[in-house]
């Protein structure tokens, strides 16, 4: 035992373990500080962008908000402010894109709703009626996160009651289980529908003053119609820098990708051009 204690090979594991322990301790000590530092940086950027907006430097304000979007720090208010900045810059299309994104995150925010309607009123092209799923109206007033939280709560209560009934056959637990089962089914349906809506939301907004929609993805193809900034289209697919868009049932064609900005997905990967 003594020999083993004094050999160098025997001493190395001990020092390595100690170093590892120190490293883990150091990481643990700074771990809470890393997100905090990033949050401080994001707050600073947000306040400076707001300050630029107040001073009328809308271009700098837009850059600040865009940086927050790229960093994944954008909530509904950042998208809303970004929409305001683009609106002041006369970029109606980009303003509408960001108002729409803000509305996805905060569907009941009256400011977002007002500015979105105001911006839509300035569009040149007359929007055509889009048929919607009947439940889309009320479902559009809640976010996917809210649906998830509500469903998670119902889910927890439902299985809690089931667990309780493993030990006690109280009568009220039976009624509670039935009621919660109905709520569970409704929540699951709403969650599924919301997910489907998000997955099939291919709306995009014309962000250039005017775009040409052609019969095919080439400059030589026949010009079908023109769309103007702020007009909402459905993007069907993208090929070689061209997007296949549909404005209405009978107005569909290809346009160059930079002229149209998809509303989804939100987050760092989908900044404006």
């Amino acid at each position: 035992m003594k020999d083993r204690m004094i050999t160098p090979r025997a001493g190395k594991p001990g020092s390595l373990a100690g170093a590892t322990a120190l490293l883990v301790l150091a990481l643990l000590s700074i771990w809470p500080a890393l997100p905090e530092a990033r949050a401080q940086e994001a707050h600073g950027l947000f306040f400076s962008a707001n300050q630029a907006f107040r001073e009328g430097d809308y271009s700098r304000a837009a850059q600040g908000y865009e940086t927050l979007v790229r960093q994944g720090r954008a909530g509904a208010d950042v998208y809303y402010n970004l929409g305001n900045a683009y609106f002041r810059l006369g970029r109606l299309g980009l303003a509408l894109v960001n108002y729409e994104r803000a509305r996805i995150l905060a569907p009941r925010d009256p400011d977002v709703d007002y500015n979105l309607r105001h911006a839509k009123g300035m569009r040149v092209d007359e929007a055509e009626k889009i048929r919607e799923f009947p439940a889309a109206g009320w479902l559009a007033k809640v976010t996917g996160r809210e649906v998830f939280i509500a469903f998670a709560a119902v889910n927890a209560l439902f299985f809690l009651i089931l667990a309780l009934r493993s030990f006690r056959d109280w009568e009220w637990t039976w009624y509670a289980a039935i009621g919660l089962a109905i709520l569970w089914a409704v929540g699951a349906f709403a969650g599924g529908l919301k997910g489907h809506q998000a997955a099939t939301d291919h709306r995009a907004v014309v962000v250039e003053d005017q775009i040409e929609v052609r019969a095919g993805p080439h400059e030589e193809d026949t010009l079908l119609f023109l769309l103007h900034t702020g007009t909402v289209v459905d993007q069907e697919r993208m090929e070689d820098g061209w997007r296949l868009v549909r404005f209405s049932q009978d107005k569909r064609g290809w346009t160059q990708a930079p002229g149209v900005e998809p509303i989804r997905p939100l987050g760092p990967g989908n900044g404006p051009t």
């Binding site: 949050a39 994001a42 707050h43 950027l45 947000f46 306040f47 707001n50 907006f53 927050l68 994944g72 720090r73 954008a74 909530g75 509904a76 208010d77 950042v78 809303y80 402010n81 305001n84 900045a85 609106f87 995150l105 400011d111 007002y114 500015n115 105001h118 911006a119 009123g121 996917g144 996160r145 998830f148």
Partner: peptide
């Protein structure tokens, strides 16, 4: 007259409540 409403300045804007 009509114009857009002002920007939102709450610090919570940069703490998005995203899906887990």
């Amino acid at each position: 007259g009509e114009d857009i409403l002002p920007i939102h300045e709450s610090p919570e804007a940069v703490m998005p409540a995203a899906m887990p």
